[in-house]
Design a protein around this nucleic acid. Structure first.
Length: 544
DNA sequence: TCTACTGCCACGTTTGAACGGA
DNA sequence: ATCCGTTCAAACGTGGCAGTAG
């Protein structure tokens, strides 16, 4: 029912959608018994389970426009906002339950791209992943009623290419492809994140994938930005958007930029090139792992292997996976589950799981001992296992002795196939085996893990089936912290992590150091961006 | 030489403080 | 004294471009 309701509402008119269903069932009840079947949204219990939550991408049509042209996002040293901004409409939450909404941006593949012949081409292997960071919505934690009352906007999220960024912006590599993800974590007081009962889900909208750039490469994208971004109105004025330039230069005729000239000169060749590219791609075998990322690892296997044209794909495999996770027994096992087409938004994938418990104290985590102790950074670690061949092999995960509550997805090393010269397959995200990947908020040191570690599976776990939200943990050293754990307590009671000043500017270093050290990390300000750290087998959660 | 990146610029939007009137 | 609406300036966000580094 909710699905129908949601689908029937346009992006713009959904802001007031609220669930009228309210239940006290299970809000505090452990979800240990979540089964594959139960993980599937049920119209009868729309707000009992986190998997009942529906997320609709706001301005999806606009995103599609960009997607079709090959979305590019500017990244600067100071940080640049995304446009279109990431906004979603959430429904299906329990109005009284508290949730934490956060996003992260993960590599879509392990390639570096270049814009050549008016299209994106694979230019080599990706550079080592930047320290993963999370952006926790400033309102978090908040009740389901709050989230459902209006659009949830992540417009203040900023992207940077400054590896030492002190502002907490999400660090990306230029000329790489990324995929934003939304994570919803249950933060109910009696079902705190990290506890055996904590649950979360991950939503991925494929049309939000983009390539990070330091300056726009595709003129179409530039024009779309100018036409749609209010802040860029100053560049409007003529059909080509160059009128302003001509005015500035005192000319009566539009000035064609260098890039425009280049692009126009080569545009005549792009079409043919694209066809040729498509042919090449078609010949590539599909590679299995689809969702392999976690703070550094690619989100999915490279798109370039998809047998599609070289243009940004507008069609996707309608069969999306619906992943469910739950704790088994003492939360040391994950039960993967169900698979179903996601009807509401064909472009979205979401993953559910019951979060691992903190039972194995974070203190034991090799990378976050301090953070954990201080609980400044919320981290969720996962460990590498070799079971990640793909997907969701429930049994494998469940039986794997190495898997514990902290494991979200099994991480697989980047595929090593050669990609040189292979045309870029624009944003046809393939999450065939997608498993929930999880953001991991970790100790600062974790963020410094080298790619080599990632490759070794140390960096984060990921691959196909585990993922995990990171939730800020409180810092014991700080004045207040416990609350940091989602759902552990009311924000008011624990200023350190969730205490924030609405609208207050970001605080560099002091409040949000690039590599936070103990005791001072807070998610207060508008941008709760965390580093996604690696997790290791030793990652543990502590009870709040 | 080429490509990617940086810093600066002008312009428009957003935000919030200040002010005045009801 | 409080509330509400308006005004205005500073802060912020944009893409373009020239210069620079590798």
């Amino acid at each position: 029912m909710l699905q129908e309701k949601a689908s029937a509402v346009t992006d713009e008119c959904m802001s007031r959608v609220q669930t009228d269903v309210e239940t006290d069932l299970l809000p505090h009840q452990p979800r240990l018994g979540l089964s594959t079947a139960s993980a599937i949204p049920s119209s009868n219990e729309p707000d009992q389970n986190i998997e009942s939550i529906k997320v609709i991408l706001h301005e999806r049509e606009l995103w599609k426009k960009f997607h079709e042209a090959g979305t590019e996002m500017i990244i600067t040293k100071a940080g640049r906002r995304m446009f279109p901004s990431y906004k979603v409409k959430v429904t299906g939450m329990n109005p009284k339950t508290k949730y934490i909404l956060l996003t992260d941006i993960v590599p879509a593949d392990d390639h570096r791209y270049k814009f050549c012949d008016n299209k994106w081409m694979v230019a080599g292997k990706a550079e080592p992943a930047m320290p993963g960071r999370l952006y926790v919505h400033p309102d978090s934690p908040a009740t389901g009623a709050h989230w459902m009352r209006q659009l949830v906007s992540f417009q203040k999220l900023k992207l940077t290419n400054n590896h030492l960024d002190p502002f907490g912006h999400i660090i990306l590599n230029s000329m790489h492809k990324y995929q934003p993800r939304l994570h919803i974590v249950k933060a109910d007081e009696n079902n705190a994140f990290g506890s055996k009962n904590t649950a979360y889900c991950t939503h991925v909208f494929h049309e939000t994938a983009f390539i990070s750039v330091t300056s726009y490469q595709n003129h179409k994208i530039t024009q779309l930005k100018i036409e749609n971004n209010p802040f860029a109105k100053g560049f409007r004025g003529s059909e080509e958007g160059d009128l302003r330039v001509s005015r500035l230069q005192g000319k009566e005729y539009p000035v064609i930029s260098k890039n425009m000239v280049r692009q126009r000169l080569i545009s005549s060749h792009s079409h043919l090139a694209g066809k040729l590219s498509a042919g090449v791609l078609t010949g590539h075998p599909q590679v299995l792992s689809s969702f392999q990322y976690e703070a550094g690892a690619p989100l999915s296997n490279s798109d370039h292997q998809d047998p599609i044209t070289n243009h940004f794909s507008q069609s996707r495999d309608p069969s999306l996976l619906y992943h469910c996770f739950k704790h088994r027994d003492n939360a040391r096992h994950l039960e993967l589950g169900c698979k179903r087409p996601y009807l509401e938004t064909s472009s979205e994938e979401h993953y559910f799981r019951s979060a691992p418990s903190y039972e194995s104290s974070l203190l034991s985590h090799p990378y976050c001992s301090e953070a954990i102790t201080s609980r400044e950074a919320c981290m969720y670690g996962s460990m590498e296992t070799e079971s990640g061949s793909g997907a969701a092999d429930t049994d494998d995960l469940a039986n794997s002795p190495s898997i514990n509550c902290n494991m979200w997805a099994t991480m697989q090393p980047y595929p090593r196939y050669s990609v040189e010269g292979v045309p870029y397959q624009p944003f046809t995200a393939h999450f065939t085996n997608a498993a929930a990947v999880t953001p991991v908020v970790t100790h600062p040191t974790s963020s410094m893990v080298s790619r080599s570690q990632t490759d070794l599976g140390v960096y984060n776990s990921t691959s196909v089936q585990r993922g995990l939200p990171i939730i800020p943990t409180s810092s014991s050293s700080s004045s207040s912290c416990s609350p940091a754990l989602p759902g552990s307590r009311e924000r008011s009671g624990h200023p350190s992590l969730y205490h924030k000043k609405p609208g207050s500017p970001l605080r560099p270093h002091r409040d949000f150091p690039a590599y936070p050290t103990q005791g001072t990390l807070s998610i207060r300000d508008a941008s709760y961006q965390y580093q996604v750290g690696l997790s290791s087998a030793g990652t543990h959660w502590t009870e709040s």
